[in-house]
């Protein structure tokens, strides 16, 4: 039981990080039909922005702010204007190809210009364990969980309670109608790219102390984002959150109780089943098709 609670909490923590990545991923899909195959690399990269800032003598908190700001510029603004916008008129597939190339580009750039070795990354709060019902829970897990929950709740409030958020949602759900209603759609689309950049930067700060900062990190993280987004529902922010959490818990529990060799296969099998049985995802809306 104790170890189960331990696994559950660490699963929740991982899942919360996956959820952040998946939410950004679905936002981009909703507002601009961008399947970002570089989303994993987007999480890998901010950690290196932070490390570079720290190498220049910035304290960790300042480096984090610099990292987030750099992400917003590079992974938000530059990504949208240089990669996505020129490709939109060509349809989904060429953009997929571009984002695959971008993933390769980012990965190789970090390897060649920073390091191919895993880099240690500072933790937000120094280690220390809590004992709850006999289970040992690391403070790191709790901090990760806390930050992720605050971020997700904050995002949720922003999307649902503010005028800006509602305009973003309207843009995501029906850009044509949103335009008619006077929503500045282009600006809203840009904002979703910025939100995504902030989310991946936060995810990067949370996950890098655990995985260490390494150029290959994006491969597993990107896959986790796709899986979470599809399992939960490609067109729903709530779905992506649920998908991320399910995936994180599943990851931890299956590694402990089932064949660890095939640990990576379980989410994939769930993915295939979900796509075949309920392609819109657990919480997704059916994208109506008429003849």
């Amino acid at each position: 039981m104790a170890s189960f609670i331990q696994l559950l909490v660490s699963g929740l923590a991982t899942g919360a990080i996956y959820a952040l990545i998946a939410v950004g991923f679905t936002l981009l899909w909703q507002t601009s039909q961008t399947i970002n195959f570089a989303q994993g690399e987007f999480v890998m990269l901010p950690a290196f922005f932070i490390l570079i800032a720290m190498n220049h003598g910035a304290p960790f908190w300042l480096a984090c702010l610099v990292g987030i700001a750099t992400s917003v510029v590079v992974l938000g603004i530059l990504f949208k204007f240089i990669i996505v916008d020129p490709m939109l008129k060509h349809g989904v597939l060429p953009l997929v190809i571009s984002s695959i190339a971008l993933a390769l580009f980012l990965k190789e750039a970090v390897k060649d210009f920073y390091s191919s070795q895993a880099q240690p990354f500072p933790v937000l709060v120094s280690a220390g364990d809590f004992h709850i019902f006999g289970a040992v829970i690391s403070s790191q897990s709790l901090v990760v969980l806390g930050v992720a929950i605050v971020t997700v709740v904050g995002l949720h409030l922003m999307l649902n309670k503010t005028r800006l958020g509602r305009m973003m949602q309207a843009t995501a759900q029906n850009p044509t109608l949103a335009t008619i209603l006077g929503v500045p759609v282009r600006k809203m689309v840009l904002y979703t790219f910025l939100v995504n950049a902030v989310l991946v930067a936060i995810a990067s700060i949370l996950i890098s102390p655990i995985y260490l900062a390494k150029f290959t990190n994006g491969e597993t993280l990107g896959m986790a984002a796709f899986l979470a987004a599809i399992i939960g529902g490609f067109n729903q922010v709530r779905g992506a959150i649920l998908g991320g959490i399910i995936l994180g818990i599943l990851d931890n529990l299956s590694a402990a109780y089932l064949s660890s060799q095939y640990r990576a296969a379980f989410p994939l099998i769930i993915l295939i089943v979900v796509i075949l049985v309920r392609p819109q995802g657990l919480l997704g809306r059916v994208e109506e098709r008429t003849v």
Partner: peptide, 28 residues
């Protein structure tokens, strides 16, 4: 068969999952 039910990005992910599963089988 999945392609009969789902298209485009969904199909991309089904085939992507298939590739990873085949890799795991070959490795394990």
């Amino acid at each position: 068969y999945p392609a009969l039910r789902v298209q485009h990005h969904y199909l991309a992910f089904v085939t992507l999952a298939f590739t990873t599963i085949v890799f795991l089988l070959l490795r394990n």
